[in-house]
Amino acid sequence: MFWDLLKKEFLIELRSKEISASMLTFGVAVILIFSFSFSVSPRTMNTFAPGLFWVMTLFIAVLGLHRIYAYEKEFDAFGFLISAPVDRGLIFLSKWVSGTLFLLVADLFIAPPFYLFLQLSARPDPGMNFLILLLGNLGLMVLGSLVSGLAMRAKMSEVLLPILLFPLASPVMIAATKATAALWSGIPFRDWQIWILILLTIIISFGLVGFLVFDHITEE
C-alpha cells in the first residue's frame, strides 16, 4: 500500500515535473542572488557557504511542499485519498519520503552551480556529505510534511507554512549547517557526531509522531 502511494507521488511528478522544475529554477535564482549580495573574499565565502546552502534548501523545501500539497487541494483529491481505505500514517510516510527525494534530487542538481558560482574550495568526503544532505533533508521534510498537513487547508496557507515551519525546523538548520561546516573544514567526525545524533533524533521522533497523529490531521 505504501509503495502504491509512493508510486502515485512519483507518477504525478514525472508527468507534470512541476515540483522539480520549480525547485531547480528557484534554487539557481537563489544562488545568483547570494553571489551578488555577498561580494566577499573567497575565504569568507567558504565559511558562509554551509549556512547559505541550507538556507537555500529550506526555501526550496517550502516551495516544494506548496506544490506537493497544492495538487492535493485541487479537485479535493486529498478528500478522496483519505476516504480510501488506507492507513493515514502511510499517507504521511509517502508524502515524507517523496518530498525528501524531490528535495534531494533538486539539491544534487543545484550543488554543482552552487559550488562553482560561489567559488568554493572545500573538498569534502562525498559519502559523508551525502549522508548529511540526506539526514538534513529528511529532517526538514518530516516537519515540513506535518506542518503542511496542518496549514494546507487554512486560509493564507502559503504564509502559514513558513511561519510555522521555520521556528520548528531551527534545530534541523543548526545541526545540518554545523555538520556541513565541520565536514568542509576537515574536522574529525568524532568532534561533531552530536549533530548527526540530533538529526537522527528529530527524524525518528517526529517521524513517529507524524505517523501517529496524521490520522487526526486528515480526519474529516
Binding site: L150, S170, A175, I198, V209, I217
Partner: peptide, 20 residues
Amino acid sequence: VLGIIAFLDVPIIFLSVKFW
C-alpha cells in the same frame, strides 16, 4: 497536534542551541 509538536521540539531546540 501543533501543541504536541511544539513542546516535543523544546528539548531538541535546547540541545542544539547549547552545542551551537
